[in-house]
Simulated assay, not measured.
Amino acid sequence: MANEAPEKNVIAVLVQDHDRIRSLFGEVQAARYADRRQEVAHELSALLVQHSTAEEMFLYPEVRESIADGPSRADRGLQEHKDLERRLKKWGRGGDDEEFMAAFQDVRAAVLQHIDEEEQELFPALEAQIPVERLHELALRIEQSERIGPTRPHPSAPHRPPVNKLLAPGMGIVDHLRDRLAGRRGH
């Protein structure tokens, strides 16, 4: 049918997230007032957690199974996500502007390096090895996971399937409720 929307590719979905993450980093840096900076930081943190959780549930298992040196790449990505959640937890504690911005710069540097590695190395490897139908299927799973997944860092939560696939939706429900009660804007 001519009216059907084209199927989404997981790489395009993830790059779109990466672009939004970069944009939010810029908004935090440009914010002139602490309350605006904190508001954007909460939105950024929610997006980072949802994005990371979705990658852990669906992208990294695919990486592990489908590409050369997939297990080591997946393990590295999972470790970077665990480290990010620890950084986000520290960042979320607040503090004065100097503390906040120092933690922000730490998060920003780690995330941008991770994004660059994914876009320059991992995604081309995936596109070369995974059938297009599977890339479309993964896009749908990633998007669904991001809608219902956690919005707050949980550094001690499992980061590997199948346990993370069982726990993430429940953590997401609790986080979304907490966000509403706190008036926090999420992804």
Rank of each mutant, 00 (worst) to 15 (best):
E118S: 00
G77P: 01
A102K: 15
L88I: 09
E121R: 11
Q113A: 15
L122S: 04
A103Q: 10
E80L: 04
H136P: 03
G92M: 06
H114F: 09
E98Y: 12
R86L: 13
R76E: 15
M101W: 06
R86Q: 13
E121K: 11
A109R: 08
R141V: 03
Q113P: 00
L84Q: 07
R134N: 04
E85C: 00
E80T: 01
Q129M: 11
P131M: 09
L140R: 15
E121D: 14
R108G: 07
R76C: 12
Q79H: 12
F104N: 05
E118Y: 00
L122F: 08
R134V: 11
K89R: 08
E121W: 07
E98K: 15
K90Q: 08
Q129D: 07
A128S: 12
I130W: 02
D116S: 13
H136M: 08
A110C: 07
D96I: 08
F123Q: 06
A110L: 11
L135D: 05
I130N: 02
R86P: 02
E137N: 08
G77C: 01
I130V: 15
I115H: 01
A125C: 00
R108T: 09
V132G: 02
Q129N: 14
V132T: 13
E127Q: 15
R87G: 07
E133A: 15
L112D: 09
E119H: 09
Q105K: 15
K90R: 13
D96W: 10
E118P: 00
G95Q: 01
L112N: 12
L126C: 08
F123K: 06
V111S: 12
I142N: 04
E118A: 01
A103W: 03
L112I: 10
Q120L: 05
I115L: 06
K82M: 11
F104T: 06
E98T: 14
G94F: 08
V107I: 15
R76F: 12
E85H: 05
G95H: 01
V111R: 10
R86G: 07
G92D: 05
L126A: 05
F123C: 06
R76W: 11
E80K: 08
V107W: 10
L112W: 02
K89E: 11
P124M: 01
F104M: 06
G95R: 00
D83L: 07
A139P: 06
H81C: 03
A110R: 06
Q129L: 05
A103G: 05
K90E: 10
L126Y: 08
F100I: 08
H114V: 08
D83Q: 11
A103M: 05
W91A: 05
Q79E: 14
I142G: 05
H81I: 01
E137R: 12
L112G: 04
V111Y: 11
P131S: 10
G77V: 03
W91K: 03
D97Q: 14
V107H: 10
R87M: 15
E85A: 02
F104S: 01
E143L: 15
L122A: 05
D116T: 13
R141P: 02
E117S: 12
D116W: 10
D83C: 04
E98M: 11
R76S: 14
G77W: 00
E143W: 10
E127C: 13
